[in-house]
Nucleic acid binder design. Sequence first.
DNA 1: CTGAAAGCGCTTACAG
DNA 2: CTGAAAGCGCTTACAG
Lengths: 336, 336
Amino acid sequence: MTSPPPRDSATIVNVAREAGVSIKTVSRVVNAEAGVHEETRARVAEVIQRLNYRPKLSARSLKSGRSFLIGLFYYERQSAYAANLQRGAARACREAGYHLVVESLEDSAPDLDRQVERTLCALRPDGVILTPSLCDDPRVLRALQAQATPVVRLSPCVDEGPVVRIHEMQAAQEVVQHLLALGHRRIGFLRGPTDQIASAWRLQGYESALAAAGLRSAWQADGDFTFESGLRAAERLAALRRRPTAVFAANDDMALGLLAGVEARGLRVPQDLSLVGFDDTPSATRVWPTLSTVRQPLEAMAVAAVQALLGSEPLAPRTLVLPHELMLRASSAPPP
Amino acid sequence: MTSPPPRDSATIVNVAREAGVSIKTVSRVVNAEAGVHEETRARVAEVIQRLNYRPKLSARSLKSGRSFLIGLFYYERQSAYAANLQRGAARACREAGYHLVVESLEDSAPDLDRQVERTLCALRPDGVILTPSLCDDPRVLRALQAQATPVVRLSPCVDEGPVVRIHEMQAAQEVVQHLLALGHRRIGFLRGPTDQIASAWRLQGYESALAAAGLRSAWQADGDFTFESGLRAAERLAALRRRPTAVFAANDDMALGLLAGVEARGLRVPQDLSLVGFDDTPSATRVWPTLSTVRQPLEAMAVAAVQALLGSEPLAPRTLVLPHELMLRASSAPPP
DNA sequence: CTGAAAGCGCTTACAG
DNA sequence: CTGAAAGCGCTTACAG
């Protein structure tokens, strides 16, 4: 007489006994390995179904040496950026039977190396995705290397090892080309902070596109990627004798600051001044006029990173460039 | 002659041998258990340090039945909300030697129950945090219950079992009181979608605060929590013969839509119209005037949830109400 | 096509 | 205060 097995007894041993096979055969069915008689597999599958059996991750990991875990590490302050990545990463993991472990690290933590090291040693993730600008942090990279954990970096400063990114400079060029196509000839640029490589790429794109059109920069100012620095720049911009008819800000937050600042001074966007940002933050569509900007395919980048990590062949140290997208909205229009 | 142990041999056995003790003693030192002679513990600690030993999570889990994992589950579209929670949850986990596994679920997935169930069975998290409105999804709750996984829910519809929330209605009342204190008497309200419980709470707070002041609602309209619905409401608002001097929108996105819409129609905020939102989204400080709103202490709520989950005593089925915060900014001022 | 045995690296009782 | 033994639930060689 077989009484129904208690809840937690859905182990491989019980499934095997119930199906009248060895645990090895159950393992084969669970892992969809070839070489199981169809009749046997059906019988085992039925028992698995009935007992609601699911292999336990910890047991699989312990024996196999794989953790079925992918890490996504980022600096706390980048949580908005990371949120978009997560969506794609979580989905890609799920589809591969993996799980995503998210580690939010404090930039300024003096023991950051140890934090990373502890996480790695405990979890032993099969791969880690590193987001900017954590992906350039030597403390993190060293810890990862010491554990020999496969890593894919997103938009690092230097393309070394496996990397996924967009072509930032080209995207910036396209922003300028868009403004040129609208008829603008006096185009300004609001720079990002010099310690971020993205600032340099975007400035380069701006300058090269202008040069290619035989034009010179109409105006430039320094910002630090914050809304407030955009506000401050608006003040200087509004005070100019001869203003540019369009300004490209190195990121959305600054573009939004410019927008708010120039409108407060009686300039209308886009009638008097066109504005374009970079990043496509949520705020870009929560203002009027909605902000033209550049979108990175963050979700697709995360998917690509997971796939690279889970690919059967050893991780190729190459750079994957994904297409960006110009989001043309209401803040850019022909010059007055 | 002892050669330095190879990289991966930092197991409990090797540490024990090196220190000349049993593995049990090493275990005691690692887990900071009492009852180890100080001299012994120092010797073991030294070896742990030298071999860079870290216990492997999978081995601990397998034997102990604990996974040292906490799950944070949310609907994909709530990723911005979840990002703020994550910061707190990740930190609280780290401090307790736990790790956060994030599961981003598709609201509309027909097999959502199975997705949750697979995750639970594989990971066996020691606890799960459920965010709105996933925390009210019967499919998710059933799956969790079937696995007997401890759960803390954040801002659910009904306070059943362990819950962390703010007092939404009271917060809404305070918004109205703030506007009253500024001198407003004609106060309108932009409602949220009726299928979200938060809409009802906020409306109730608005109405009761008004009633307590002996006033009647000056204007109401229906929105759906989107920027666009705020824009549409602005159209109706601007067309009124006798406008309210202040409007409380049930969330920030709608308040931002109102802001954009009324300014496009020549009204100035806050000179002609005060505006208050709810949520304190990042966009609230990326517009001008910056938006007055209500902030939930999401980080603290997540920390509280983790602590409840990790508390030694069994999870108490009680509601923890955390203090919200009125963020008074530039969009609210005395009436004209 | 199928199975018996060993063992991954810890923790849990238990004994002394 | 310390340790020897058992075992968590799987997968990995290996054998037949």
